[in-house]
Amino acid sequence: MAQSGFDRRRINGPEESFPPFFEADNSPKSQSIRTTRSPKEIRPIFLQPGLILQANGSAYVETERAKIACAVYGPRQSKNTAYSEKGRLNVEVKFTPFSCERRRAPLRDAEDRSIAVAVQQTLLSSVRLELFPKSTIDVFVVVIEADGIEACIASASVAASTALANAGIEMFGLVVSCAACIIEDDVWLDPTQDEASQAQGVLVFSCMPALGKVTSIWESGQMKPSEALACIDVCEERCSEIHSVVAQALLSATQHQ
């Protein structure tokens, strides 16, 4: 056999190969309509502060399949940084290897960091950092199971803000946030992974309902200005409901102590 590339010491595949056949996927993807809730409804939220005992403050949030744990440490002394009058808020996001449909390597990658920046932006203006000179507040978010990255950012900010309040770190107000997407010119709240992948544009809205202040708006994909404004209006409405969930969770956790 004068075949080039043939090696008797290795297991060689068959000489000819064919791509696998799949049954044609007839159902168009955009037909997967939500059945459990209406487009303007969000998934039910389970929120429990104070589950991680080693941390100064912590919170666990679960919205159907999405599960996120958050721990707050500090204020501790900032190491290896220049003198600063204000404190620093350090947010780190980690995904468990089994959190997504594809296995995630346990290394930090670009997506972790961009989510961490998004979460940090939602929290930054709510924390009274001027009271913590030279100190750092560490917020660690672990995504145990993710269902849509945008909903993940929203839940992570809610969990982080609850954990900060649980840790007794002074803040101007509680931050809650809500995600929305545009599917076929319609606003859908709290999109799951499938819905977000079909959406033309996705928006994460964060605010402090107690003060009526917006802390951050994070948008990706395509969206008309009118659609973005519609998303913001609907999210703002839902945020006051999420705020009452957070308030209830914090109050019952404080009274049990």
Binding site: N56, P75, R76, Q77, R128, F132, P133, K134, S135, A165, N166, A167, G168, E170, M171, F172, G173, A210, L211, L250, L251, T254
Partner: peptide
């Protein structure tokens, strides 16, 4: 006047504060 911690505000002399015993820098 707004709260910035979870708790009950109490008077200590003439100052009003929410006290929480926790480590601080």
């Amino acid at each position: 006047v707004r709260a910035s911690l979870v708790g009950v505000p109490r008077y200590e002399g003439s100052t009003l504060a929410i006290t929480r015993v926790r480590p601080h820098p």
